[in-house]
Design a protein around this nucleic acid. Structure first.
Length: 775
DNA sequence: GAGCACTGC
């Protein structure tokens, strides 16, 4: 045991923070107690963990590529055309889109799809359709006219009031942009406007911060998260006749939960919906059909299983790609990559750009340098080489360059990318792909409450996906910098998110939707029992479930708040008179949940110094949380040019605007949930610096959600986590970087090169014990 | 002295 003595609140309150799971009682400390081995083991166990991969059930594949950026002009024409009565414009548009629809591969499968779902019982259709098959836009249009897709007035129980069941089709997407653009496109194809509730229309969408559901909209595009929220109010999805779950192969946590809830509705039988059946369509690019099939088998009435579960494959379109592997495993991947690129450049004709997949920014910048140096020695009869990096941290302008054709004639573009180019974006002009076979993957370690971000071999499905990037515009070639045997040994697909992430939010979602026994909730890939138990213990500490695991009133409120459970707990604590800092908590939470950091990372030496000075007025010595608070308050007090202000402070404008969006939404929800009494005055409010007393209250309030993410200063100047005794260093991006404080609280804990604490605040050790006491 | 990529309520 190390010399530091963590607060031991359990001695004072032996039964506090203990929860009954099955026939055992587990306390927070049981989970957070220091491990028997020494803390140096942490990094080792992480490395081991990332390689311990179990069975996989799906293959991931192209996703964002299926949704092309879409022109909205024709929709506007349609709308104006409609308001003037029918016009030639509208007719031409409809005829044009019908013509396009007919060329889609799915067109030939219409009857099969209708037939698979034509019965009077619950039915499931699994539809495997590759990129470009048209499944996302056409399937809802094929189904909404079916006789079973009607509204029914029924009594769910005898003597109960009549309710309306069915009539609508929900189609879920993992991303907002997909839901909105698909809705836009389908509304054009059917010729009704996409508008708010005051107009009639067939198609609508509903995503966070944006809802367009016309009157009578039968086809509704939703994000998975939105449908999960609807499940809180409507557990049997009674407004829908069919739910289409698209892009299932991405295996987000939300989609896994959604599939579980759908299975439960199907298992319950049509009676819970007053006899109105629910049709479920599972759509995926390249999912493992067997896994999806066996998951849903058994949820349907036994006798009719065979008839009510159907599988359809729809072919996509792709040019052939010739794949080659290394004969032997190579020692220096960076070196081979550069050599391979020059070999392609010397041997393959133009046009044909090269796309190389590397694992991270560092490797990309190193390879770029080496290629550029070598390129100067090329003979003049060879085309010129233009090297372009492509990774997420790159500025938008920097990224854009990688998508443009090379401006000089007689030259070849070489794009060096992370896995951003695997699914998220498509680089045009690529005919040659070089794949190093690695990618950085984030994985959560429930035992120590830490994430890791480490390079590891990609999955087979990723490798295939990377290869496919060479065949978008014509036949191509793919060079894998590993042997065919190593390819065969890759695991089939990436771990689904639910096995890589913290399941705290997922467990709260289940509890709030009436699942008492979360360990037996149907999931395609159930997380380890320990991960779920850990989440239950933590929910108990947060006050979301009581001693026997039943959801509390507070827990129900937490589930309705659109932020992670820990932060919901902070918001609930902030309402208490002893803290009284709901508005401040909302401001901070808005800044940390708006996506990437609102502060841009500065790489150059000069830029860093300059930024240091311009950000000085925002920085608080108490740490990052209060720096965020000051920043959003100064921003919203800014009366003149907010854009200029962000530029001066090197703040990401897009994220800052999103933070303001979230802030507005959270304020609204907090009023509705009675966490706030009244709406605060409109912006801009004059900025008044926070008093040290208020600052202390806010940090003590955040400890109510993050008491277990704390560390104490060791004699040698390093930090040791209070629970678990793991060494942790303050991340260089923190305002507290390099400083020594008695104790720290951190919101994120990530292992990259070493164990880093992010979003750090300076606290007093005594506050930790206080936060763990009776609430 | 640091940064795979996303996404959602």
């Amino acid at each position: 045991m190390a010399s530091h003595k963590p607060p031991r609140p359990r001695k004072q309150h032996p039964r506090k923070n203990a929860i009954a799971i099955g026939n055992r009682t587990i306390s927070l400390e049981d989970y957070l107690a220091p491990p028997r081995s020494k803390s140096v083991e942490v990094s080792k166990s992480i490395h081991r963990g990332t390689e311990e991969h179990e069975k996989q059930s799906t293959e991931s594949s192209d996703t964002a590529g299926t949704i092309a950026p879409h022109s909205f002009t024709s929709a506007r024409k349609l709308r104006s055309g409609q308001s003037q009565g029918s016009s030639r414009h509208l007719r031409d548009n409809l005829q044009a889109s019908l013509k396009t629809q007919k060329t889609l591969p799915i067109w030939n499968y219409q009857d099969h799809i209708r037939e698979a779902l034509h019965g009077s019982e619950n039915e499931v259709l699994v539809l495997i359709g590759e990129t470009g098959s048209g499944k996302s836009t056409q399937v809802p249009q094929i189904l909404y006219k079916e006789p079973w897709c009607k509204r029914h007035k029924v009594r769910v129980r005898e003597n109960s009031d009549e309710v309306t069941v069915g009539g609508n089709i929900a189609i879920t997407q993992p991303r907002r942009v997909a839901a909105t653009t698909l809705a836009q496109r389908v509304s054009e194809e059917v010729g009704t406007p996409l508008s708010n509730h005051s107009y009639e229309g067939l198609v609508g969408y509903s995503v966070r911060f944006d809802h367009k559901i016309p009157k009578g909209a039968k086809i509704r595009f939703l994000t998975e998260g939105t449908l999960l929220q609807e499940l809180l109010r409507d557990p049997f999805l009674r407004q829908y006749s069919a739910v289409i779950v698209d892009e299932v192969h991405e295996r987000s946590i939300d989609v896994d939960l959604l599939l579980g809830f759908l299975k439960q509705i199907l298992t319950a039988g049509a009676s819970v919906r007053g006899g109105v059946p629910l049709k479920v369509v599972i759509m995926s690019a390249t999912a493992d059909v067997e896994a999806v099939k066996s998951f849903f088998e058994g949820s349907l009435a036994d006798a009719s299983v065979r008839e009510s579960l159907h599988v359809l494959h729809i072919q996509g379109r792709q040019f052939p790609v010739q794949v080659s592997h290394e004969a032997q495993a190579i020692a220096d991947v960076q070196d081979s990559l550069v050599k391979r690129i020059f070999k392609i450049h010397a041997e393959e004709p133009l046009p044909g750009d090269v796309l190389a997949f590397l694992s991270g920014q560092e490797e990309i910048e190193a390879a770029k340098k080496s290629i550029e140096e070598h390129a100067t020695t090329l003979p003049s009869n060879l085309p010129k080489i233009k090297v372009l990096p492509l990774y997420g941290q790159l500025s938008l302008e920097g990224q854009r360059e990688a998508f443009l054709p090379v401006s000089e004639s007689f030259s070849r573009k070489v794009v060096l990318a992370t896995n951003i180019a695997e699914t998220s974006v498509t680089v045009p002009g690529v005919r040659y792909v070089v794949d190093c076979g690695k990618a950085k993957v984030k994985q959560f370690r429930p035992r120590i409450g830490m994430e890791s971000l480490l390079a590891k071999p990609i999955s087979k499905s990723s490798a295939v996906q990377r290869t496919g990037r060479a065949g978008r515009e014509g036949p191509g070639k793919c060079f894998r910098l590993y042997t065919e045997a190593s390819f065969e040994n890759l695991q089939k697909a990436d771990l689904p998110e639910i096995l890589r992430n913290d399941v705290l939010g997922a467990v709260l979602t289940m509890k709030a939707r009436g699942i008492h026994d979360v360990l037996s909730f149907p999931l395609m890939d159930p997380p380890e029992r320990e991960a779920i138990e850990k989440a239950l213990v933590q929910l108990h500490f947060l006050g979301a479930v009581d001693d026997d695991g039943t959801i509390t009133l507070a827990g129900k409120v937490m589930a309705r708040l659109p932020v992670p459970a820990t932060l919901s707990a902070v918001l609930l604590a902030a309402r208490r008179s002893s803290f009284d800092c709901v508005l401040e908590a909302i401001d901070i939470i808005s800044c940390i949940t708006c996506g990437e950091d609102i502060f841009l990372t500065i790489t150059s030496e000069e830029g860093r110094e300059e930024t240091e000075i311009s950000r000085q007025e925002l920085q608080r010595r108490e740490g990052d949380l209060l720096t965020y608070l000051t920043t959003i308050r100064v921003y919203s007090a800014e009366n003149s040019d907010r854009t200029q202000w962000c530029k001066r402070k090197k703040i990401n404008i897009r994220n800052m605007k999103q933070a303001m969006n979230i802030r507005r939404q959270l304020r609204g929800i907090c009023i509705k949930e009675k966490l706030l009494d009244e709406a605060p005055g409109p912006d801009p409010q004059p900025f008044t610096p926070l008093s040290p007393e208020k600052a202390e209250l806010i940090l003590r309030c955040f400890l109510r959600g993050f008491a277990y993410k704390t560390a104490l200063l060791a004699p040698d100047g390093s930090f040791m986590t209070v629970y678990g005794k793991h060494p942790v260093a303050i991340h260089p991006g923190s305002v507290l970087y390099g400083q020594k404080k008695e104790a720290i609280m951190f919101l994120d804990h990530v292992f990259t090169n070493k164990s880093y604490a992010k979003k750090v605040s300076a606290i007093q050790a005594s506050w930790i014990a206080e936060a763990l006491e009776v609430k």
